[in-house]
Design a protein around this nucleic acid. Structure first.
Length: 1157
RNA sequence: GCAGGGAUGGCGAAAUGGCAAACGCAGCUGGUUUAGAACCAGUACUCUGAGAGUUCGAAUCUCUCUCCCUGUACCA
């Protein structure tokens, strides 16, 4: 009976599904083991052989743990929200849910063929409303929480409001926005509800902010930092620009230190930990405050820039403002005339850029903004509110609003209202203020070098730039800002060598020496890191050094015995400070401490820890993602929808693109408003403009953004524990039983995305008592990538060829010169002419390709370029020409040139006798990808060799964590192993099943030795995730048992269990044939017994001066001296020594004997 | 630049201080059989990226260098 893998695999896959063999139970006396593979995004391309690697490893471990008596949870699901389905929807109009469903079905089919022991009853899909209900729920928990620095954990927002009511916020130590104002308990009580909510938003763990984001115009969405590669989008490679938008943010920075500390408690790969550590980027140093000096009269002091716009967008805004001034609305025009004629004693500007907005009218000296609104789209309410919030709180302006009607019908009333505001005492100050009140805060890791400061550099986007720039420098600074704003992030990165900057004309005061320090701006200082300003120490920092050299700024040396004439000196260890007053002679460590101490005495600095980690942007302008459970009330404040009304399901839209007004795709939905009376999603038409007093009907617009890809994947590992619970994210019993993931397997590309965010959410859930463990995965393994082998050959690139309209292009293109052997064996030029030939390919072993490249045969070709052939038609680097040409229409009429001649339309023309006729491709290892024509489909492998062969082979390829090239040819090795294994159990006549039931244990010594050697090795290998070596071990074992003609059940039964985690189908089949009624899945793993491996003697290698010369079989009972005596007495030893006396004899019992001399 | 990982036959690799190359692919020789293939038996090659050190003994530990991969970057 032959090994019929097709039949066997189908049979057992059916059996497992029918009997729910791998269903995990939440109540069991067995110890739990939770092994998880990262769930896939179900892409349209399906699986290739690289994808299952991690799943196979996880499955082997899961099956092994079942044999070891654990209650194993091994679930699988789909990360089914994502961009490709949405892109496909945009192109075809097909709903992403349909695309996703189709893809999932295809994935499932492919996964099922591989015989995984997944508990499919627990499947989750992130795009399923029943699942994302709980993603929305976690978001609400985050919204309702703040981070208490005193207790060092997240707490409910009610504990915060309780403090505010009793003490105000001055005693609160919390992670919050930088611009949070201080207030007393009385102030708090005086605040309106909206004002209170604005304050609370500064504390919540998820909050709204105008964040500078990575905007990808081509994709119409914001991307996270980890979704950008080399300045372009990871998906599609589109350019990315910086843009300010109001976004939901996650206050992950609150957890920076704990995310760092937690790494010590988990068994994750060091490179992964390192990249998280770098991403969090903790640096210790000091924050130092520099006072800005008053400008001297000679610098024309007192004239400060009126530039109030956000510097990064100023160019665009100015253009826009100019245009708007030219085309005022009637109401704007009327108010402008009135403001100029009414003798208000205050100068107004119209259409003036402030921050990222253009306001209608503004008095810069009075900090008063007047806005005139026309008919506005309801969704703009939210934006207006946000704009007002920003202008009032961040920029210190007062904003008053009028409608067009008010202005046109009652201009006198409007003017008197404005007068009232102008007279109110709260206005004033602002942009007229003296810059010497200003302070520049910097972060430095080298406070010890404070006396080396010879200038300061601000990021061009820094807030103070406009304020401190002197009249003389204004033009230069503005020009520089504009130039920088135009440069994309990519340009800036590509060109880090160019040094650029501008002098502001202003000076700061050195905190100790009180010397004036010039203030520059330069784009090597990043607005997004630290405070966006640096104290420049050219002698100690290469960037500062280069900047100083370039602009001819003084470079004082504050290091003892160091030459800084060529470059900066940055070695902390060797630092001895000089020329630095009280720091003289101190080492780095001591100087840092002293400098911080002195700064604290002055009140101009303190020790500080800075993190590179930024709060994470949580809004995406996409359709195919989780909708936020958020609506905006009449004041534009975000409100959470109560838990019991979740999920808020994605609305239907007609188009999946952003709206014409630039709103996210959900802006296309017609049913996307929240009725607080009925708690239902209702038509947008029911929303009334809240600007009109008293028309509030309790129906509000819903949030238009959706959540990012990492939202759903940040809680799925917990949800698997109790996936169908609709009352809670999971039951307490379930989470207390499973607790956390014991083994997590997945790719390292998620290091700073999914794996960091998930840790953040888990810590948050832990703080709030929702999860029992602070880290969600104890052990993590990164499987390596399986690379593909692309098949290259050269293509002569022809621009002109015959078409239906006659010949197009160059006439020469259809003449191909080749070499031909003449009668004398010499080579002649051979001219081949055929108008139908479109492409010419040269076999990789075609000798004259160089001459083509050099142009010696160049007439027909523009160039010779490499061409990738579909690896499906390549075997052992030989192309199946006919198969390839007939399956690729465009290459049908191609000429395939080989050393012996050429092929065209299946016919061979010989030019050289006896030379090769096969077309050879050149293999090159690349990432496996459809576009590289090098993907290998697991289905084809399963058809030809079976799932067990594929599983074994993927493991056999090499160490799990290493990247390795795929080579289908090698699979015959493991496949014939399986056949040998099968034959071992079918040693009867005609291959009949034969396993001896009642063996005589006598005479099985060798077999037991083989078995237990195998048990020991396989068990060790699985525990160490060294799956490749256990496959070898199986091969050795089967080879040995076959040689021993072993048929004993006592050997073959345990062997089937050993093999079962790797090749479960064949193991089940053999198990059944040996008389078992139930699945092998929970059969106890064979117990290793050392007694079978006890040896009485050993082949000792005998070395002379470390070189092995021969071996001697000696008893293991001999002690050192006896061994030495036995070896020295031997004739071979004497022969080697040839009369010399050894200086020294090293005897290691059980290992080796080494004779020196 | 920084951080991490790596370099062993023609290829994938094994050996973590003690007989280098187990196991498999490819190659070669022979056999059995065949529509194709498959199967069986046998077999060669190469000496651990370079250099130095520690050691009785180094692929393995230490140092220096070279090259490759991965991640990350004006991070103050």
């Amino acid at each position: 009976m032959n090994y019929d893998f097709k039949e066997i695999e189908k049979k057992w896959q059916g059996y497992w599904a029918k009997h729910e063999t791998f269903k995990a139970h939440n109540d069991s006396d067995k110890p739990k083991y939770y092994t998880l593979s990262m769930f896939p995004y179900p892409s349209g391309a399906g699986l290739h052989v690289g994808h299952p690697l991690g799943y196979i490893a996880g499955d082997i471990y899961a099956r092994y743990k079942r044999h070891k008596g654990f209650n194993v949870l091994h679930p699988m699901g789909y990360d089914s929200f994502g961009l490709p389905a949405e892109q496909y929807a945009i192109q075809t109009g097909q709903h992403p849910a349909i695309t996703t469903e189709t893809n999932i079905n295809r994935y499932r089919e492919q996964l099922d063929r591989l015989g995984f022991s997944f508990d499919w009853s627990r499947e989750v899909r992130t795009s399923d409303p029943k699942y994302y209900k709980w993603t929305q729920w976690v978001f609400i928990q985050l919204f309702n929480s703040w981070y208490n620095t005193d207790t060092d954990k997240a707490e409910g927002i009610n504990t915060l409001t309780a403090i505010f009511e009793n003490e105000g916020n001055l005693t609160v130590n919390a992670v919050c926005d930088d611009d949070t104002p201080g207030f007393s308990a009385d102030d708090w009580k005086q605040f309106s509800k909206t004002e209170q909510e604005k304050i609370l938003l500064k504390y919540r763990l998820t909050y709204l902010a105008a964040a500078e984001v990575n905007w990808c115009p081509a994709l119409g969405t914001v991307l996270a930092n980890d979704e950008i590669v080399n300045g372009v989008s990871e998906r599609g490679g589109h350019p990315v620009i910086r843009k300010k938008m109001t976004q939901w943010m996650m206050r992950i920075t609150a957890y920076a230190q704990r995310l760092l500390d937690g790494l010590d408690t988990i068994d994750w790969p060091q490179p992964l930990k390192d990249s998280q550590t770098n991403w969090i980027g903790r640096s210790e140093g000091a924050s130092v405050i520099f006072k800005v000096l008053s400008p001297t009269p000679s610098e024309g002091g007192g004239v400060y820039s009126r530039l109030t716009g956000d510097s990064s967008m100023i160019g665009v805004l100015l253009e826009r403002a100019k245009e708007m001034r030219k085309n005022p609305t009637p109401a704007e025009d009327s108010l402008w005339q009135a403001l100029r004629n009414k003798n208000l004693d205050v100068k107004f500007r119209r259409q003036h850029p402030i921050h990222k907005y253009i306001v209608d009218f503004v008095s810069l000296e009075k900090n008063l903004i007047i806005e005139v609104d026309g008919e506005i789209h309801q969704y703009q309410l939210n934006e207006d509110a946000e704009r007002q919030l920003l202008l009032e709180q961040k920029k210190g302006f007062k904003v008053i609003r009028f409608t067009n009607n008010e202005v046109l019908e009652n201009i006198e009333g409007v003017i008197s209202k404005i007068k009232g505001h102008l007279d109110s005492p709260s206005l004033g100050g602002g942009w007229g203020e003296d810059p010497s009140q200003s302070e520049i805060e910097v972060f430095t890791t080298r406070p010890d070098t404070i006396f080396g400061v010879s200038f300061m550099t601000l990021a061009p986007e820094h807030e103070l730039v406009a304020k401190i720039t002197t009249a003389e420098q204004k033009a230069e600074v503005e020009a520089y800002i504009e130039a920088t704003a135009k440069r994309s992030e990519r340009d800036r990165m590509a060109d880090v060598k160019t040094i650029s900057g501008a002098f502001t004309g202003a000076y700061a005061e050195h905190p100790f020496s009180k010397a004036p320090i010039p203030i520059w701006i330069g784009d090597y200082v990043l607005a997004g890191y630290g405070t966006g300003a640096v104290m420049s120490v050219p002698c100690g920092d290469q960037r500062d050094y280069d900047f100083a050299k370039h602009f001819d700024i003084d470079i004082p040396n504050i290091f003892e015995g160091v030459d800084i004439s060529e470059e900066a000196f940055a070695d902390k260890e060797k630092t001895i400070i000089a020329n630095s007053d009280f720091l003289n002679g101190l080492s780095y460590n001591k100087a840092v401490k002293r400098a911080i101490f002195e700064l604290e005495q002055l009140g101009q600095g303190k020790g500080k820890v800075n993190y590179r980690l930024r709060d994470a942007v949580f809004s995406r302008q996409r359709y195919w993602g989780e909708p936020f459970p958020v609506y905006y009330d009449a004041n534009g404040m975000p409100q959470m929808i109560a838990d019991e009304h979740l999920p808020i399901e994605l609305p239907e839209v007609e188009k999946y693109l952003p709206t014409e007004t630039g709103e996210p795709p959900l802006g296309n939905a017609t049913n996307w408003a929240w009725d607080t009376n009925t708690n239902k999603v209702v038509s947008n038409d029911l929303v009334t403009p809240s600007a009109v007093e008293g028309s509030n009907n309790g129906i509000y617009p819903l949030e238009l953004n959706t959540m990012p890809g990492w939202a759903g994947s940040s809680q799925y590992f917990n949800r698997y524990m109790d996936p169908h619970n609709d009352k809670a994210i999971y039951s307490e019993e379930a989470v207390n039983y499973w607790e956390d993931v014991d083994l997590y397997i997945g790719g390292s590309e998620h290091a700073t995305g999914h794996l960091l965010y998930s840790r953040f959410w888990q810590k948050f859930l832990f703080d709030r008592g929702i999860a029992p463990k602070e880290e969600f995965a104890r052990k993590l393994i990164n499987q390596g990538m399986i690379t593909g082998t692309s098949a290259f050959a050269n293509q002569g690139y022809v621009t002109g060829y015959k078409t239906e309209n006659g010949f197009e292009g160059k006439r020469a293109s259809n003449v191909i010169f080749l070499l031909k052997q003449n009668e004398n064996g010499k080579k002649d030029k051979f001219q081949y002419s055929n108008n139908d030939v479109k492409y010419v390919f040269f076999s990789s072993d075609y000798e004259y390709i160089e001459e083509y490249k050099k142009g010696e045969f160049a007439a027909p070709f523009n160039q010779v370029i490499p061409h990738r052939f579909d690896v499906g038609f390549v075997e052992n680097n030989i192309l199946n020409i006919e198969g390839y040409a007939s399956n690729h229409d465009s290459f049908k009429d191609s000429l395939f040139v080989v050393p012996g001649g050429f092929w065209l339309n299946g016919k061979f023309t010989e030019l050289f006798e006896g030379k090769s006729r096969v077309f050879v491709t050149r293999p090159e290892v690349e990432k496996m990808s459809k576009s590289k024509y090098n993907v290998v489909n697991p289905d084809a492998i399963c058809d030809e060799y079976g799932a067990d062969s594929l599983r074994l082979y993927e493991m056999f390829l090499g160490p799990l964590e290493q990247s390795k090239p795929w080579n289908t040819a090698g699979i015959t090795g493991v496949h014939s192993f399986l056949k040998k294994l099968w034959r071992l159990y079918h040693s009867g006549s005609n291959g009949a099943f034969h396993v001896a039931d009642s063996p005589s244990l006598e005479g099985l010594g060798e077999a037991f030795k083989t078995l237990h050697k195998t048990i020991k090795k396989v068990e060790e290998d699985i525990e160490n995730f060294s799956f490749n070596t256990s496959v070898s071990t199986f091969m050795i074992c089967v080879n040995e048992l076959t040689a021993q003609k072993c048929t004993s059940k006592a050997i073959l039964e345990p062997l089937a269990i050993l093999v079962s985690p790797y090749a479960p189908h064949i193991a089940e089949e053999l198990w059944e044939k040996m008389g078992h009624q139930t699945s092998i899945a929970e059969a106890p793993f064979p117990k290793f017994e050392a007694k079978y491996l006890v040896e009485s003697s050993k082949e000792y290698p005998i070395s002379f001066n470390g070189k092995m010369r021969f071996t001697l079989e000696l008893s293991l009972d001999l002690n050192k001296d006896e061994l030495e005596a036995a070896v020295m007495a031997h004739e071979k030893t004497q022969a080697q020594l040839a009369g010399r006396t050894p200086k020294k004899i090293i005897v290691v019992p059980g290992k080796i004997v080494n004779i020196v001399g």
